[in-house]
Simulated scan of single mutants.
Amino acid sequence: MIPFNKPFLTGKEAHYMYQAVYTGKLSGNGAFTKKCQRYFEEKYGFKKCLLTTSCTDALEMCAILCDLKPEDEVIVPSYTFVSSALAFVRQGARIVFADSMANNPNIDAEKLESLITDKTKVIVPVHYAGVACDMDKIMDIANKYNILVVEDAAQAIDSYYKGRALGTIGHLSAFSFHETKNIIAGEGGLLGINDERFIRRSEVIWEKGTNRSEFFRGEVNKYGWCDTGSSFLPSEVIAAFLWAQLENLDMIQHKRKELWNYYFNGLQALSKEGFFRLPQISKYATNNAHMFYIVCRSLDERSVLIKYLKDHSVSAVFHYLSLHKSDYYKTNYVEIPDLPQCDLYADCLVRLPMFYELQSEDVEIVVKLISTFYKSRD
């Protein structure tokens, strides 16, 4: 069986976790936490980074930092994971869903301005598959209307837009280290802060609404409750696991990009014959090889293809359902928007196996199966 995903271990995870355990400092914000945060700040240029227990937690911190009031509007692509919207719903915001691009699942920046009202407070671009949204366009619109931008960079570690690391362009950003991501910690996330006005408050929110971080740095002689917040920081065990992964980021990325290119080159001829669409990487974006997907011609075709691959011991899966068609949205919102590109990806996109230990021979097997499937149908 060729699985869809298999978590990769570098070999140092247990060693660093052992170190964390025997330092006697197991709660959050210890040595490994600081090393991981400093890694992102120095390598990518964030003003401040804070590890979290998940990307969802990082997004919830973003929503708190945006100081949303009831009925404030937040623009989110409908083709995304529920956390992209849920984090802001929990702060009382009204979600306005945006459509995807015709050639890419990312938010269609050309249509954003038409969604803006005097209640719009935040835009949440999601860098699907680690490929950049059109951030210049999005930031120009945000600056024009004095709107905050929160990058959902869950899938976008080590990916760039015009030479700038994803997550460093908007005011705030969130990353994921879930076991399906390029760099993993089982669960885990990161809040990226690019606007200095959010730095102090983010630490308070991170530490359960207290100025505990300032106390441990010796900046105040006591700490107490001074804002809202929660227990967002992960334990040192999680940070230690993550550090072993970050040490090997370049090696992991190199292998994943090789596998992605095997897929692309192997399937290109079939795509040119019109059987399906391959991912398109915009000129302004890099590819971090988070996933490889194809876009089938119909929902029925996708369903049959997934079953065919499963019958031949290959696990391929579809991805997001349209959030604007979810039970929650239909129950709580009167108007259901028409978002045809989002629905296209929800119905037709299928993800192929992609993980570090996948071999080129495995990719060749998957490519040959897909070729046989389409040639027999044709």
Results as ranks from 00 to 15, higher is better:
F4Y: 08
N5K: 05
L9G: 06
T10K: 02
G11C: 10
K12N: 14
E13A: 11
Y16W: 13
M17K: 15
Y18P: 02
A20K: 10
V21M: 15
V21G: 10
Y22D: 13
G24I: 01
G24W: 00
G24E: 05
G30H: 07
A31Q: 13
F32N: 05
F32Y: 14
T33P: 11
K34M: 11
F40C: 02
F40A: 06
E41T: 07
K43A: 06
G45Q: 04
G45V: 07
C49L: 04
T52C: 11
A63V: 11
I64S: 13
C66H: 03
C66S: 11
E71S: 08
E71G: 01
V74R: 03
S83N: 14
S84I: 12
A87D: 10
A87M: 06
Q91W: 11
A102G: 01
E110V: 08
L115C: 02
K121I: 01
V126P: 05
A129V: 01
V131F: 07
I138V: 15
N143P: 09
N146D: 10
I147K: 02
V150N: 07
E151S: 13
D152Y: 07
A154D: 10
S159W: 07
S159P: 14
Y160H: 15
A165W: 09
L166M: 05
G167V: 14
H171P: 08
A174L: 13
F175V: 13
F177Y: 15
F177D: 12
E179Y: 13
A185Y: 14
G186I: 15
E187M: 10
G188K: 14
G188A: 06
L190Q: 15
I193R: 15
E196Y: 01
F198E: 12
F198A: 11
I199E: 12
I199A: 12
R200G: 09
R201D: 10
W206S: 13
G209Q: 01
N211R: 08
R217I: 00
G218T: 01
E219M: 07
K222V: 06
D227Y: 12
S231W: 11
S231A: 09
P234C: 07
A244N: 12
Q245C: 15
E247K: 09
E247A: 05
K255S: 06
K257C: 12
K257F: 07
W260T: 00
G266K: 03
A269T: 03
G274Q: 09
F276P: 06
I281H: 07
Y284I: 01
N287G: 12
N288Q: 12
F292L: 01
S298Q: 10
D300Y: 02
D300L: 03
L305K: 07
I306V: 08
K307W: 00
S313Q: 02
V314L: 04
V314W: 02
V317H: 02
S326L: 03
Y328Q: 00
N332A: 05
Y333Q: 00
Y333V: 00
V334D: 01
E335A: 02
D343Y: 04
L344E: 03
Y345G: 09
L349K: 10
L349Q: 10
L352R: 05
M354V: 01
E357V: 11
E361Q: 11
E361P: 04
E361L: 04
I370E: 04
S371P: 00
F373C: 00
F373D: 00
S376E: 15
D378R: 10
